[in-house]
């Protein structure tokens, strides 16, 4: 099992490094968002408006991390569709390697690789705060080892659950058209019902009710509460949000396993 997994992880890695355009764009796009969107929409307001974040850009940059993890996962399933078209998945299915490995290798690789742009955004936002003429993320809390660990786990779990879901769609669907149809259907609603980009106070009340439970919000809450030391703005401690996020992940991954098993079953 490990040797098979290793072989497929290596393939993922080789394919990744052979597409520099994709690497550069996946790193550049979030950075552009941060610079264009974050700088341009520097709304007034302080911790009271932004759930404890000292200003909008600090609030927004933490949200970007969740947004990036979600966006990166959308591409994973598309890759599977193309691999299927090339007969690569059929070739893998004809070997004695367990079917779970065929699903696990892109899941592991793509979830880990999503952390790179996600934390690049965070690092860059912190850096921008120190560059004259730019606004950036100001860490006002005291993020200890535990806080840092929670942040990494929250982003990783978010990446894993969305990658699992979209990979399952990739294995289950036949055409790129139907895949992108699903992506289109899910992507924006997930994003816009979260608190990743807009602070509470914008939009109707029912939206905030949903935003409380949105997995992207839960992930971003873990980041914000730790980064801005702002427990008074949140009803729960970060660990509670992390647990709620894990519950979502369990549900998504179960769904992905059911879908993926069915898709990889012999027709």
């Amino acid at each position: 099992m490990l040797r098979e997994l290793g072989a497929l992880l290596r393939r993922e890695w080789l394919r990744y490094i052979r597409t520099p355009v994709w690497i550069i764009s996946s790193l550049l796009v979030p950075v552009l968002y941060l610079i264009l969107f974050g700088q341009g929409f520097n709304y007034p307001g302080g911790p009271a408006q932004y759930l404890g974040a000292p200003n909008y850009i600090s609030y927004f940059a933490a949200g970007m991390v969740g947004f990036v993890a979600l966006t990166m996962s959308l591409f994973s399933g598309a890759n599977v569709i193309f691999d299927k078209g090339l007969g690569i998945v059929k070739r893998q299915a004809a070997t004695p390697a367990p079917r779970s490995v065929i699903f696990l290798s892109p899941l592991i690789f793509r979830s880990l690789i999503a952390l790179v742009p996600a934390f690049l955004v965070l690092g860059l936002a912190v850096l921008l705060a120190h560059i004259p003429g730019f606004v950036g993320l100001t860490v006002t809390g005291s993020v200890g080892g535990l806080g840092g660990f929670e942040i990494v786990i929250a982003v990783l779990v978010l990446a894993l659950m969305f990658n699992a879901l979209f990979l399952a769609f990739g294995f289950a669907l036949e055409s790129p058209q139907s895949y992108f149809g699903i992506v289109n259907l899910l992507n924006l609603p997930i994003l816009f019902t979260s608190n990743a980009l807009y602070p509470p106070g914008v939009g109707p009340d029912w939206l905030h009710q949903i935003a409380e439970y949105n997995p992207v919000s839960l992930c971003v809450n873990v980041l914000r509460e730790n980064l801005f030391g702002s427990s008074s703005y949140y009803p729960y401690i970060p660990e509670v949000y992390l647990l709620a996020l894990l519950a979502w992940a369990a549900a998504f991954i179960s769904l992905a396993v059911v879908l993926g098993r069915r898709a990889l079953r012999t027709p």
Binding site: R3, E4, G6, A7, L8, R10, R11, R91, Q92, T95, P96, A97
Partner: peptide, 9 residues
């Protein structure tokens, strides 16, 4: 190499 790995070699 990938093919050999998938065969557990």
């Amino acid at each position: 190499e990938v093919a050999a790995g998938l065969q557990g070699i």
